[in-house]
Simulated assay, not measured.
Amino acid sequence: MPLRYTPMPSDLAARYRRREPDAYGLTPEIHVSGGDGMPCRHCLANINAGDPYLILAYRPFPELQPYAETGPIFLHAEECQAYAGGAVPPILTTSKDYLLRGYSEDDRIVYGSGSVVPVADIGARATELLQRAEIAYVHVRSARNNCYQCRIERA
């Protein structure tokens, strides 16, 4: 099954770069990257050392509801190109494993779908989950901190 790794929407990234309020109503914080561990959720690549970036609260769901998790993410402070590749994006190669979890069409967690998956198995596990009729998309999150990384959909 062809997969699409979906970044944060470009219009939302632009709003945050204009320093509009994040999911908690706060102004995104601006910092300078030390070079490691700062994955941008728009281009899905790491932010280079010396580049400015934002830290903000992000809720990758269309509306508030009990399963709409919100958490911290990083974003290039300056415009970057949205990730559009079909392969595993660069930010998903910086850890040994990630948490993958399936969500239904109404943005609810599909119980029993979450598991920590080695990087080499991300595509296979996402394909397995997306073959289930009740799963509309998959979130990739940090296996250690639960930070949102990106969304995987059927291409």
Rank of each mutant, 00 (worst) to 15 (best):
T70R: 09
G71N: 01
G71F: 00
G71E: 00
P72K: 09
L75G: 06
E79D: 11
E79K: 04
Q81I: 10
Q81T: 13
Q81C: 04
Q81K: 07
A82L: 00
Y83T: 02
Y83G: 01
A84W: 00
G85T: 04
G85Y: 03
G86N: 11
A87D: 14
V88K: 10
V88W: 09
P90I: 02
T93P: 07
T93A: 14
T94V: 15
S95G: 10
K96F: 09
K96Q: 14
K96D: 14
D97R: 10
Y98S: 01
Y98G: 03
Y98V: 02
L99V: 10
L100A: 08
R101I: 15
Y103M: 07
Y103K: 06
S104A: 12
D106M: 04
D106L: 04
I109V: 15
I109S: 09
I109M: 13
Y111P: 14
Y111F: 14
S113K: 05
S113G: 06
V116R: 11
V116P: 06
V119G: 06
D121C: 03
I122C: 07
I122V: 15
G123S: 10
A124R: 10
A124S: 12
A124D: 13
R125F: 15
R125K: 15
A126T: 05
T127V: 11
T127R: 14
T127N: 14
E128G: 08
E128A: 13
L130F: 08
L130S: 07
A133T: 12
A133E: 13
A133I: 10
E134S: 04
Y137A: 04
H139W: 00
V140I: 10
V140R: 04
V140S: 06
R141P: 11
R141E: 15
